[in-house]
Design a protein around this nucleic acid. Structure first.
Lengths: 362, 362
DNA sequence: CTGAAAGCGCTTACAG
DNA sequence: CTGAAAGCGCTTACAG
């Protein structure tokens, strides 16, 4: 019974059975159905198992036999490493992890793919009984491969899929409320730090014509919300400068703010689609010697902790990230238990006014 | 060929073979050994597969048959959800994810356990070819269960295991350097916001006698470094107030600072074992109307982004978190490829002096 | 180029 | 209370 090293696998239950002179089944029962054998024999078997470092049946065999792995798959954006750069996204994952810990369930984080094929493979192959999909472009091969699995699935934010429960917020409404706040302060020349328009668009200053080509639903909804607020306030949308940020990072926020501020006339208020982006803009303003909020107002979106402690503290639109993750995980677990799917959840958002906004100068 | 819904599994290669009137093997070859059959037949098979939503062989069967899953297990602290609250820890995970994405490999995040049994089970059962262990107490059942797997394993920070490669920093030396900075400014009354002493200790003010019972190697090393610096500078260790924080969060930092500042005489400098803790202390000082750095110096440990943008910007000890994760993942991949283990890596650290430290008042 | 056979490690009726 | 048998879905020599 010492083929462990060679096989890369531990001692098998069968080997244990042979050693003890009992049947394969009996060893299995010792682990799974204690009532099927005498306590004495069971102890003898468990003892031998311990001696051989066997903690239980082989997980690969279990999966094949039982058809479940006890693990949840998580598609955490199409660019796994980038997602960790935004605390808002991390909170979503933390929410998922909170539920997973409680259920003693492991989480399989599936990376998207530089190359299409291998990415498809990783999702198709992920050892998971169900999937949580967070912020994936609707036409991404990752999403396609995920849906092809046909396992219980819950979607957070994007992509909404007919028939699948999702958890999210009303992005349109939220962006409108945020923009209204800025407009009500009297600003008319706005700059928007938007998120990406399509999975592979180049980023940068976005002419109105480029705004036609947006395929990312989240960006489209928010931009539409901004536009609606402007229309209601009688502010000309053509004069709103939009900059596309490819990812939510402070460095993109800095670049975007610098570009936006170089417009003539310069915007008096910047609306960022994430706090991380807004924090980058804040930094750019500091560097340029621009006083926030008296020379420039900046608003974010998300309400991450560092926005609250920034100087000036960031006005933002709060959304419940932790709750998003928790809800999605809970829904997935009830799906897995065969309960009928909970209805999709639209979570509440809230405008949080702090110190980074003020009426325009002059 | 429509048992999909029932079985929870997709169409099998066998079913495909039956439908096409070819052998099981031939279908397998279509996926794995294109040279074993005619291109025309291969296309016919792949076509049928597509029609049935079959993206490849069943992953469970593959794992059992081939003995590998193509996934990496990650034990990300013993309390998975808490780890996401510290940006430093998240950066480690980001480093791991960067390499994983590049290798198109999924990551299995295994939660620790409220209850021992189930936690043990989750590690024992994780669908992983190798393990990365990050910041787990040496005697945690999670660690024990992980080592029992006997798969290629790399440890980050803790617990160092004879025979296993690890990636980390010299905590003793780093803490000493940090403390020396404070001492050189002239401070003699220090307060230390330490990390937990043992997995289940209560936290709070830590008398010298309680300091004897530390089992967490990281806390022990750092405290020893502080102590050594004090001894070298002739500062009495008995007068250094130590507070044990159970986890690295701003709220623990606030509580710790409040408790430490209530000592008589109050410390003139606070040394925190993480930036997140230091940021909490900074907040507590603000709230109490204490001016940092002129009435109180605060130093952190880690160098997370929000420490640099805090007001005042945090003096800290930088450690390369991203690099820790990357190195560990790279070492694990070379282990998995059968290369000899790279030697353990001790990564460099650096004292970063910013605005949160100054000579003591008076 | 194709197909029948063995076996990866296990669980679950089922017969004793 | 115990054990022999079937089968989960696949790959890999091997014989044709």
């Amino acid at each position: 019974v010492s083929d462990e090293a060679a096989s890369g696998r531990g001692t098998t239950l069968k080997a244990l059975a042979r050693e003890l002179g009992v049947s394969h089944t009996t060893v299995s029962n010792a682990f799974n159905r204690p009532d099927q054998l005498s306590p004495a024999l069971r102890e003898r078997i468990l003892d031998a198992a311990r001696r051989h470092g066997v903690t239980g049946p082989d997980p690969a065999a279990l999966w094949l036999r039982l058809g479940r792995t006890g693990q949840l798959g998580v598609l955490f954006t199409d660019r796994l490493p980038y997602a960790f750069a935004d605390p808002a996204a991390v909170q979503v994952l933390q929410g998922i992890a909170t539920v997973a810990e409680h259920e003693a369930t492991a989480l399989v984080l599936v990376p998207g793919s530089p190359t299409v094929d291998r990415g498809t493979h990783a999702v198709a192959t992920a050892a998971a009984d169900g999937l949580i999909i967070y912020s994936i472009p609707p036409d991404d091969p990752l999403a396609t491969a995920a849906f092809a699995r046909r396992v219980p699935t819950v979607v957070i934010d994007q992509p909404r899929q007919p028939g699948l429960p999702f958890v999210g917020i009303d992005d349109h409404h939220a962006a409108r409320a945020l923009t209204e706040h800025v407009l009500e302060l009297g600003h008319r020349r706005l700059g928007i730090l938007a998120l990406r328009f399509t999975p592979h668009s180049p980023g940068g200053d976005a002419s109105p014509s480029r705004q036609q080509s947006i395929t990312e639903p989240l960006t489209a909804s928010r931009l539409a919300g901004c536009r609606e607020a402007c229309a209601a306030a009688g502010a000309a949308w053509e004069e709103v400068a939009v900059y596309e940020c490819r990812e939510s990072s402070t460095s993109q926020g800095r670049d975007a703010a610098a570009a936006l501020l170089a417009h003539t006339p310069a915007p008096t208020a910047l609306v960022a689609f994430s706090d991380v982006l807004a924090l980058g803009a804040l930094d750019a303003a500091h560097t340029a010697g621009i006083d926030v909020p008296y020379q420039l107002s900046i608003v974010g979106f998300d309400d991450v902790p560092s926005g609250a402690t920034a100087r000036p503290a960031l006005t933002t639109l709060r959304q419940p990230h932790l709750e998003k993750g928790k809800r999605a995980a809970e829904q997935l677990f009830s799906l897995l238990r065969g309960q009928t799917a909970a209805p999709s959840a639209l979570l509440p958002t809230e405008l949080v006014i702090r110190r980074s906004t003020a009426p325009p100068a002059r």
